[in-house]
Design a protein around this nucleic acid. Structure first.
Lengths: 228, 228
DNA sequence: AGGCACTCGTGAGCACGTTCACAAAGCAGC
DNA sequence: GCTGCTTTGTGAACGTGCTCACGAGTGCCT
């Protein structure tokens, strides 16, 4: 059959902003706000109002003209679209500094991503408990993934071990990976990978810092485009 | 010395990829590779060759047709463009799980971002030493920023404290901020802010997971709850 | 009921980023 | 020098995302 409920494809840029709207709406809801305009939501989210409306329009027409959006209802719709109607347990590979910090980050569990397990290769770390989660041996990965129905893996190993970690995650049945190691992972096409590279972020800031200083050497008058 | 060529503006998307090329080139250089083609660099970086060439062309014409790019020279040019010819000390606000992990992350120092200091408000944490850096009181921030000539600050506090942390960083004279807290910071226009939000990344993965499984699931429960 | 103030939803135009495709340029061998 | 092979650098085409501007609903007030 040809169901017209075929889910519209939502632009990547919009998908990346929905979690931000969701957080703001949740906060506003907690503060007792029932209804919110695109203008206000844009202000809180640091974007412009037209963009908010366009983003939300991909979900459907859930606003009320002349009034705004009902906070609770919008929260529900965004959560549904993002697949947050149920929890997504995650497994962390690597119990070093970063792995420990991630395991201890309450935000994960609160937002629907409970830590189902954390594994490492280092025998010295195995058995230790981080924020209530016991570190287990990496060989137990398949079992954790299967019994806890984990589909998201987090790579928090040193760069040299990251590809192996990813391979093991994929073999264990994980279909999405969040990679903190500064390497480009090779994975089957069907696997979704997102990368967070702290050094890259700093280098981007460095570029702007350098440009700020360096711009003065040459283009004095045009140094500040946006300021008024 | 004197760059006779007016500094071209480099597209944001390219700036974000240069650090990746830089890392790969550095690795290749260490392995004894002298020369590399855009094809090979693209393969290692997980992008396509035309994009690599276009990105590098913004730096100038530093390749040799028929041959490729000289690794050492390209490393130098990218480092120069990114402002990595000298170190950029950073100061970390927040000595919780994440702050500690960041302070302990060797990658920072290695890539030219030594931790000049880490501060917190919690008296219990002050004085403790993390990876060779002593935690100091947040009131010492201005002094650290000034004596160590810090221009990049890292916000690693809980969400509720992030805006205050940012305000303090700005007052202390920092001009770029890397924000790990799940809030949109309000800062003067001249301040460059980049945000890394772990929960957002997971939610994006969740969207794709849900979409993968849920092509089949049709929109249920679109009935709107009774409006007040 | 009618008018007014407000805010959504969206088409159209523009800006930015990516990919394609090919001329230009270099190297090697003869 | 000439031929053939390789790889860069880049204009042009294309696709995606952003912004603007305005019609279309909605609620409130008189």
């Amino acid at each position: 059959m040809a169901p017209e409920r075929t889910r519209r494809r939502i632009p990547d840029a919009t998908v990346a902003r929905l979690p931000v709207y969701l957080r703001i709406l949740t906060e506003q809801g907690d503060e007792g706000v029932d209804s919110i305009s695109s203008e206000r939501l844009a202000e809180l989210g640091g974007v412009n109002a037209a963009k908010v409306r366009k983003d939300l329009s991909y979900l459907g027409s859930y606003g009320t003209r002349g009034v705004g959006y009902e906070v609770a209802y919008l929260v529900y719709q965004i959560r549904r679209e993002l697949g947050l109607t149920h929890d997504w347990p995650v497994v962390i590979v690597g119990a070093g500094n970063l792995g420990q910090a991630l395991a201890g980050y309450a935000g994960f569990g609160e937002r629907g991503f409970p830590v189902a397990g954390i594994v490492d290769v280092d025998d010295a770390k195995i058995g230790t408990v981080l924020s209530g989660v016991r570190v287990r041996h990496i060989d137990e990965l398949p079992q954790i993934v299967q019994t806890k129905r984990v589909s998201i893996g987090v790579v928090a190993t040193p760069a040299a071990a990251a590809q192996d970690a990813a391979d093991r995650l994929v073999r264990a049945g994980v279909t999405s990976i969040l990679n903190f190691a500064p390497v480009v992972l090779a994975v089957p096409r069907a696997i979704e990978v997102r990368k967070v590279d702290l050094a890259v972020e700093l280098q981007i800031l460095s570029y702007h810092e350098q440009r700020r200083a360096g711009g003065a050497i040459h283009a004095v008058g045009t140094a500040r485009p946006a300021s008024a």
